[in-house]
Amino acid sequence: MMALFRRDLAIATRSGGAAMLAVLFFLAVVAVAPFGIGPDLNLLARIGPAFLWIGALLASLLGLDRLFQADREDGSLDLILMQETPDLILTVFVKSFAHWVASGLPLVLVSPLLGLLMNMGLESTGAVMLTLLAGTPAIAFIGATGAAVAVALPRGGLLVSILILPLAIPVLIFGVSASYAAVTDPDPFWPPFMILSAITLFFAALGPVAAAVALKAAAD
């Protein structure tokens, strides 16, 4: 399984890989916000966490449809599917995790830079980074299910995004509310953060199972 993790990471980081694409999209979305909203620093600081989260959510959706489709096109998926179901679930988990490390983790790492653009304070930036770290894996695991359902569709990209967006909404809600709670005084930080982490754990367990079942069903 380490071999699969290394392979997927190598593919994502080489030329034409999905890793840079997500980061560039994230940069583009957040970098234009101050120009559109105007130079009101207080307003930027206030909407900053939410804006970073929306940008990160949309950037995470990019490239998800290729998670299994690329393997299907070159025939690798057949060999991956020739596994017993428990092994297949583990394989899907590893693939989703590799996808997150390649395209989700960079979003977490560049978020302080974008926090600067949104005039966010140190504490607020740290909170966004922490919530992104806890929340974006959930999007990868939910996305694996969507990608598996749409694996046989030639233009599945947008469909995958639409399929998984409703499931990703709770991640966004609790991610943003935890980020705000860190800087707004009476609101507690830990309850929404714990729920966010629970959502990630829940989908880490359920997503690969659903994706494995969908892949088996889509075999032709």
Partner: peptide, 18 residues
Amino acid sequence: VAREAHYLGHANAMKREL
């Protein structure tokens, strides 16, 4: 069968980038 068999389909199951 899945564990004892090699399947070679029309596609080569190799990644161009690697």
